[in-house]
Amino acid sequence: MNVTSPTDAVHGQGGSASSRLTGSRRGFSVRSLLPLALVAPALAMVLLLFIYPLGYSLISAFTLPEGGLGLGNFAKALELYSRDMVFTLVIVSVSTVLIGLVAILIGGYLLLGEQRWAVRILSVLYRWPLFIPFIVAAQCMRTFLAKNGLMNNTLTELGLIEAINTTSFLDWRGIIITFVWKQAPFVTLLVAGAMAALDRATVEAARGLGAGRLRVLVQIVVPQVMPTLVVGLILSFVTMMSVLSVPMMISGGHPTMMTVDMAFRINAYGDYGTANALGFFSYLMTGAVAWIYLRRGIDKEGAK
């Protein structure tokens, strides 16, 4: 990682006033302590409320109910919940891909759309779910997507389907719809911001040369906003992995997501070992995704 050198950072003013002030022992001492003092409060909180509990939960995951260390909790978690782990990964991955597509489509339309009023309406409407809590989004969706919910009732009253043929979407489809509806505005906001900050000349040039809007979007706009899109998608992936209310309220049955299983192990059995083992698998999934982002950032800094 290319980091700021100490001389750049602290004496970086070259022959400036600051470097003339650095001669005394007292000045050196204060300068050495200042960054530590700046970092200390935040670092203390990270250590106390994050690193310590993380370490403790890992130890708990490796601690067997009868005492001693072992992989018993992991074996139990895999035996009971391996299907839910795959289900979680698939649900969150599919949602992430769909969120990316929706964000590109909406962002692209806002940039390249030719119907001004349609652009204006879409630009106002797409952001609204950003401010809806997951629990409220789940509540809205539960009453909207149910077999006798507003969506089916409206379609029935419009004569588009028979009442007997209505189906509930309160299963894996409901979870994905809710995740996409709730998270896409956040990613779209980032992507649309990045698109609006692009140099319009490249877009206009491509349009002038006869490229269609879809081609401009795919070949010129998306590659330039890809770093922002990836950040938004990774943050959404990690967020969705931790949501309990949506899978619990939308889809009560099995398979379900790992957060529901963790809550169940704790509430029903006080089984912290298995819950922490499930948490460990969750760390692996989010950690792997976040690592891609961090590596990319570190590589970029290195390149500079």
Binding site: V46, F50, S60, V238
Partner: peptide, 27 residues
């Protein structure tokens, strides 16, 4: 600033970015 342990301290902060706090609820 450059200070002793900066890389490790920053790494600890980044670890937090990878894992959502909700997972650590029990502890």
């Amino acid at each position: 600033f450059e200070f002793p342990g900066r890389e490790i301290a920053f790494l600890l902060v980044l670890v937090q970015l990878m894992i959502v706090p909700e997972i650590l609820i029990v502890e």
